[in-house]
Design a protein around this nucleic acid. Structure first.
Lengths: 333, 333
DNA sequence: TGTAAAATTGTAAGTGCTTACAATTACGTA
DNA sequence: TACGTAATTGTAAGCACTTACAATTTTACA
């Protein structure tokens, strides 16, 4: 069943059928209704490939996502997908894992499917790293980066100020008496670097001695984190508060501390469901995905409509206070 | 840059170029190399739409997923996507939410994009419910259901025996002395119904009085669950163990109990990261996504290759023991 | 070296849609 | 009623590929 059949059965030409298919502008009320009713009867569905060939678009956006099973990325994906769909776009999903080579390869695959744009979730790295794949992609279609920053012509970034958030966290803890704050982090994506820099910056602004910095890299795996922190404690490493680049890492630390009967202020990051589920519940920085993702999609729609758009939209993060840290609690020193 | 350009520049016909594009069978080594090198030089990418039109496939599988931000579904999605990609298929993702109407609408959208198959995650309902959309879809392409069961001609189901798992849970708790087990559940998808039935079945097999059944429906929201369980406790409802259809619900109960200084055996479901993160860590039933998803994809590949495949593959679930319940612990009554 | 079979290559006809442009029809007005 | 204009419709040429079938070249073997 194709456009010719419909044309024949409704006594018009294929051009008219096509017009009805594309919004029905320049078609008389009468013929449109006739054609539509025939389509209905015959349960006709236009062939998306032919459509794509003629229009040079299938209204699909590619999403490159490091790891969908990660709660944070999953939430971002969910929000971006929902908003794109609202605008009539379908999502071609590609989970890359953290390997740069895979990201490159898969990004090319997305482009081969002729997506109208690409959204990157957790796939942008720090400035001095190889972001050539992003550059290449941006020459073909607009690229929108969620929570990352890459400064290139056709690349648009929507992110929240994670560096500032971490600096603030350090300062808050300092004000409540902490003097040696453990910082746990995992991957050094753009976001990861910003957070680490924010931790250092906070340290500096509090006038703490540089040699006391205690930033420890770990894998995003609960058991590994717990045992890492446990061994820190066993080796006599002293610290009086914990920050983390990710809730899971914070929970791992929490468990290690609990195992030794310790209760320190802890602040996680991403404000995921893990933070709620932890006991005691985990204070966490919310990086505003709920506003960041719709913003990103709106920006993308503007771009696809040929409207100008800012290359960078920066939101502020917000601390969600729970049991492991409260701003108004009595200083603990 | 199209196939004509490549043909011209390599001194062959478009048919030959096309052959090279499609695996290079029936092309001499020499010409193939020549054509490939020209493609390389010109950075040629075949037009996926034209390709799709000619081949009547773009090698895409549609995934209909209730909610990607849910850790369980996210994990399933991640595994299915990865396995499909390994077989050269791209994933068209569609998150539907729990509304049946939306599922129907979105499933049609997927089909309009001419996907080669559809995989359903969390979108199948119990037998006597309206699964007409699935029937309609299965007339066009094979449908594979992850963790659900719908008995229709072109529908293939890969699931784990959740009913049996819940029955076993009840029996295990009974053996350790529990006599009134609270069961918390949320949506009555196919999976949800099976679990509820399993709870009842266990009750029966233990010879417990029917009127003591305590199955409570709640929304999958930590705060709601906690307050629900809290109010159960306040209203004097008595129970001595907790089962849940989902880890999040179990954690909610755990928090409510902890708030009253109670420690009961608890077993969650899905064995998600939440179960690890909870304190005390939550025993949980693992529904084997790690094997279920690859199995489902393999089955789908067989179908697409025209091979026969079983309409139902049933795995057994496995209890992962953590702090809230251990099989070898001393009976607590 | 000749010849049949096999391997390679090219021609041309799809695949189902969009759209510029030409042709037709309808409408308002003199 | 005739005519200019606007609205509607049709014709035909893309869009970039696949593939059946015919034509050509290569290979194997007598």
């Amino acid at each position: 069943m194709n456009i010719y059949d419909i044309a024949q059965r409704s006594g018009v030409s294929i051009a008219t059928v096509s017009r009805v298919l594309n919004g029905g502008k320049n078609v008389s009320q009468k013929t449109r209704e006739k054609v539509l009713s025939v389509m209905q009867e015959e349960a006709y569905t236009p062939n998306a490939f032919a459509r794509g060939l003629g229009l040079n678009t299938m209204k699909m956006v590619g999403i490159l996502c490091t790891d969908v099973s990660d709660t944070f990325y999953a939430k971002a994906l969910s929000l971006v997908e929902g908003n794109l769909r609202r605008h009539g776009f379908d999502v071609l999903l590609c989970c890359t894992g953290s390997q740069l080579e895979d990201k490159k390869k898969y990004l090319e695959l997305l482009l081969q499917k002729r997506v109208d744009a690409v959204v990157l979730i957790g796939s942008a790295f720090q400035e001095n790293t190889d972001n050539s794949h992003i550059g290449a992609a941006s020459k073909q279609v607009p690229v929108v980066i969620i929570n990352g920053l890459v400064e290139l012509p056709n690349v648009y970034c929507v992110l929240c100020d994670e560096k500032e958030a971490l600096t603030r966290n350090v300062e808050l803890l300092y004000r409540q008496g902490s003097r040696r704050i453990l910082y746990l982090y995992d991957t050094l994506t753009y976001s990861g670097c910003q957070k680490l820099a924010g931790y250092r910056e906070g340290w500096r602004s509090c006038g703490l001695p540089e040699e006391d910095l205690l930033a420890v890299q770990v894998n995003k795996n609960l058991e590994e984190v717990r045992s890492k922190v446990k061994s820190l404690l066993e080796n006599g490493e002293s610290f009086d508060a914990v920050l983390a680049s990710e809730d899971l890492l914070a929970v791992g630390a929490q468990k290690a501390l609990a195992g030794r009967g310790l209760t320190l202020p802890i602040i996680g990051f991403n404000n995921s469901v893990l933070a709620q589920c932890a006991s005691p519940s985990l204070s966490s920085v919310d990086n505003m995905l709920d506003t960041l993702c719709p913003t990103a999609v709106n920006l993308l729609m503007d771009l696809l409509d040929g409207k100008p758009a800012p290359h960078k939209i920066l939101l502020s993060a917000q601390l969600t206070e729970r049991e492991t840290f409260r701003m108004d609690s009595t200083p603990h020193v």
